[in-house]
Amino acid sequence: MAFYLAKTEPAEYSILDLEREKRTTWDGVRNPQAVKAIRAMQLGDEVLIYHSGKEEAIVGVAKVLSEPRPDPNDTKSWVVELGFVRHLTRPIPLREIKESHLFDDWSLVRQSRLSTMPVPEEFIAWLQQGQTL
């Protein structure tokens, strides 16, 4: 199982919206690197949901429920179905991730505008060690 991170503006679509709806089509991704991440997702992979904007924190976990497929509304994009899994025991602010300096080479830290990306295994271990995942 692989892990990914997907950013969303909570005013547009939040972890609470995903929890209420149970599943959603994750769309609107156009950056080639982010689309590549979506295309690499497989059934059962987990996706950390990140609230961008004022909050800037990882807030929950979703599961990939479908194979990725071309976006029927945008030839430059791909979509995937995500299902709600859980909230984290506490949000993990971007500030905390940056201040640790353990993940300075991760796209979340280096490419702040990238909306979807793989998550390093070391980060998942760090979350599990802190019992937040």
Rank of each mutant, 00 (worst) to 15 (best):
L18F: 00
L18M: 02
W78E: 10
A62H: 06
F103I: 00
E81K: 05
W26L: 02
Y13A: 07
S100Y: 01
V47M: 02
S100F: 03
D105E: 08
D27P: 02
V64T: 07
V109H: 05
R86C: 10
G28C: 04
L5P: 13
A62L: 09
V47P: 04
P70M: 06
L114C: 13
G44H: 06
H87M: 15
E121D: 15
L65Q: 10
G28H: 08
P120E: 06
P70V: 11
K7D: 13
M117R: 15
R110F: 03
T75Y: 03
D45T: 08
L127E: 11
E9P: 00
S77G: 09
K98G: 02
M117C: 10
K54W: 03
V29W: 06
L94F: 07
A34H: 03
R23D: 00
A57Q: 12
L88N: 12
K63V: 11
F3P: 07
Q33D: 13
P93M: 03
M1K: 08
V35I: 11
P32F: 07
P72Q: 06
R113G: 04
A6R: 01
K22T: 14
R23Q: 11
S107E: 13
V29T: 11
L88M: 14
W26M: 01
M41F: 13
Q128L: 12
L16T: 14
N31F: 06
Y4H: 14
T89E: 10
N31A: 12
L43C: 07
A34L: 10
L114N: 13
D105K: 07
Q42L: 12
N73F: 09
I92Y: 05
I97P: 06
P32W: 05
S112N: 13
V79H: 02
Q129H: 13
L16E: 15
A11E: 15
L82P: 02
L127C: 15
V35W: 02
I92V: 15
D17A: 04
E19G: 01
K63D: 00
D45H: 12
T25Y: 05
T132K: 08
V80W: 11
P118Q: 05
G130C: 06
Q131I: 06
A57T: 09
L133K: 08
